[in-house]
Nucleic acid binder design. Sequence first.
DNA 1: GCCATTTGACCGCG
DNA 2: CGCGGTCAAATGGC
Length: 352
Amino acid sequence: MEKAMDCEQKILISELNQGKELAERLRKHLNSISSPESRQFLVEQILSSYEKALSMLNWGAPAVEITPTITTLESPCYYANCSPGSDVSDQDCKDQCHKNIYKKRKTEPRWTEQVKVISGTGLEGPVDDGYNWRKYGQKDILGANFPRGYYRCTHRHSQGCLATKQVQRSDQDPTIFEVTYRGRHTCFQTSRFAIASTSLINAKSKLDKEGCQLEEQEQKSKLLKELSFNFTEELKSQEWNTEDDIFHLFSFPETTIGSGDEENDIFKESMLENNILGSLSTAFISPATSDSSYLAMSPCHMNNLGIDHNVRTPESNSASTSGTNSPIGDWDLLDNVDFDTNFPLDNPELLA
DNA sequence: GCCATTTGACCGCG
DNA sequence: CGCGGTCAAATGGC
């Protein structure tokens, strides 16, 4: 009991420290010529940290509907408080957990997105938002022409991910789906990004095993180039908001990337060999890192084929931020980014 | 056989 | 008591 409290307290402190650090970073950004998007992103991260800390303090208190103040830019994964469930074998415990989950759910933030489906894509609905969902119910809703679909994360049982979403087709415009998310994903392998990175890691380990060939270096270099190309293509297909999205994902040395192709190739190779793979294996491969709020990944900003994510309606008192809806799809950004040296997951407190 | 979806039943909240 | 949300058996696809 006491240990659990200690653990929560540590996480709480860490969360508050995170907020402080982000605030410090924001201060630096204010003095520099950084983009408004970067600052906005930091502000939202700060708010996210404090919201999380506050919701932790509310733990066990009468259920309060916490609605996120930021819904314009950020992904669902920032806000929820779901922790990975433990394996439950006995019924009593199951019931207890059930009740807890219910209690939790009340405190879980909810937010709604309106997703427009462009006709002719063959897509039935806003299916691909970067995560794997499993439908567990459908219900006719009073006053609605279309039934509401209930989805939960595919990795609910395997990884204890409690993220859920509800999909409701709009009465007014049947091409618009209102997607209400609940809970943050605590699973890592579900995102398209993770899939891409996992395949990278697999490929790399394969390379390492095949490393005894004579033309090893040549082959390795060739394959790595191929891989980095595929990887960047995959990343391009995501919709990153700002360079912050990138630098919060990885831990990179503070280097200024040259513009020459040769230098870029060298960069990509070293990036793959030394940084990305290492970081990714920490971030994505180990589901034990239960708190993914430090992983600034925005599945809902991934541009889906034929699906327009620009229409977005915060469910509640959104301190909706201006000018943040414009996606930055320019991959060249990466070439000019000064990557942050602090990989957010490198927090011993949280990994313990 | 495994996994995802469907669908009627059940439960809790207002 | 009605409604929204979830469960779980049945069903279907691969």
